[in-house]
Design a protein around this nucleic acid. Structure first.
Lengths: 215, 215
DNA sequence: ACCTGAACACCGTTCAAGT
DNA sequence: ACCTGAACACCGTTCAAGT
């Protein structure tokens, strides 16, 4: 670091870029303001000129990740249900590809443009489904709960971890043991799509009183 | 701290008790090994004799919280669906009452006796519903996703926070604005129960091919 | 076995100063 | 405006030593 000179060309975007790189390589604990400063070839305190504090930096990371994940996603001419599922699948995968961003999203609200856009897309999809008024917020709410849970679960619980849970069961607990092999082949995305399908079936049946289209 | 003497009566249970008290009062960031040591009237390093490290302590906290929350819960003679909903409601509430435990549960797998017992209870409920084989793990999986998501959402997103999201919407995004008032009256437990009902409806319809009992 | 005291290797951030 | 350098007030944990 002895050869560090003043560089007045550091930008906000570069700081966020480097932060995402470090987070990908080292995880959230590995992303420190000091380490990030080194990567930017700058003193720790120089970062505070571009970013308010570490939490603001983390918000920027989540916004970037979500924005990249959903891309230019918009309504297509196919089934709203296909669109909605595709949207959530992208949303999910973006977070699974960026665990640090996911951890932040799971820990606190993230108020950002990309996040607001997600909400609009969901409302639009449910409007196309024929929902209206309070139903829109309720349907969005329910499906978002499932998506959040799916991200949290798939990010932190590898399939094999359930075997370790068996060690905490006493003799009379054998139901999980009998089903333990199911978890080895568990596919997170497929599991989410099926669960979302069930939730939509039940929700539409209740709200629209019609037998909804199958999964 | 000058009047701290050696006390050889400190127990594991007392350490966990004090830790939960501090976590309740100060939050997860406020729970430090040094602060916990003070509360136990002991030197920081004395704690490491009773607990392997901080992560092990957090696991103990989650186990205690979950164990207390589900209590002596078991199958009753009423509808399995009532039982299942009641179980999840307790599980949910336990975590909402103990945010620190919830944060740990959302961040990493928690392998403990109480957690294993939860899985057994869920499998048992779905057995009573008439499911068998792979269906048991799949139904448990789907409902757990929803429960995890509900905990994460209700713990970290106060109802009013959605209004702040509006500031990140540009002019053409007005769908959330139109529904924003729905979130003010949002009741987390009720919202979870309804969503769980929808998920169970869709799931049973698909797995058992019958029109399931209403919510 | 149970505990103390000092130290190590970190954190995020404030403050004062340079250009 | 943009950056440096030193310092503050913390962390979890290791290590060596006491009883």
């Amino acid at each position: 670091m002895a050869e560090r000179r003043q560089r007045r060309d550091l930008t906000y975007d570069e700081v966020v870029d480097r932060a995402i790189e470090i987070a990908q390589a080292e995880g959230e604990r590995g992303l420190t303001m000091r380490g990030l400063a080194d990567a930017c070839q700058v003193t720790p305190m120089a970062l505070y000129h571009h970013v308010e504090n570490k939490e603001a930096l983390l918000t920027a990371i989540v916004d970037r990740v979500v924005s990249d994940a959903i891309g230019d996603f918009g309504a297509t001419d196919v089934d709203w249900r296909v669109d909605l599922t595709e949207f959530f699948s992208r949303f999910r995968q973006g977070f699974l590809d960026h665990p640090t961003a996911a951890q932040v999203y799971l820990r606190r609200p993230v108020l950002s443009p990309a996040m607001a856009r997600c909400t609009e897309l969901l409302f639009a999809a449910f409007e196309r489904a024929g929902l209206a008024g309070d139903q829109l917020a309720e349907a969005t709410d329910a499906t978002v709960l499932l998506a959040i849970g799916s991200v949290a679960n798939d990010l932190t619980r590898p399939n094999e971890i359930r075997r370790e849970l068996l060690e905490h069961l006493d003799a009379d607990g054998t139901r999980l043991s009998a089903s333990i092999d199911v978890y080895s082949e568990r596919d997170g995305d497929q599991r989410f799509r099926r669960s979302l399908g069930w939730l939509l079936d039940g929700l539409l049946e209740d709200m629209l009183g019609e037998s909804a289209a199958g999964t």
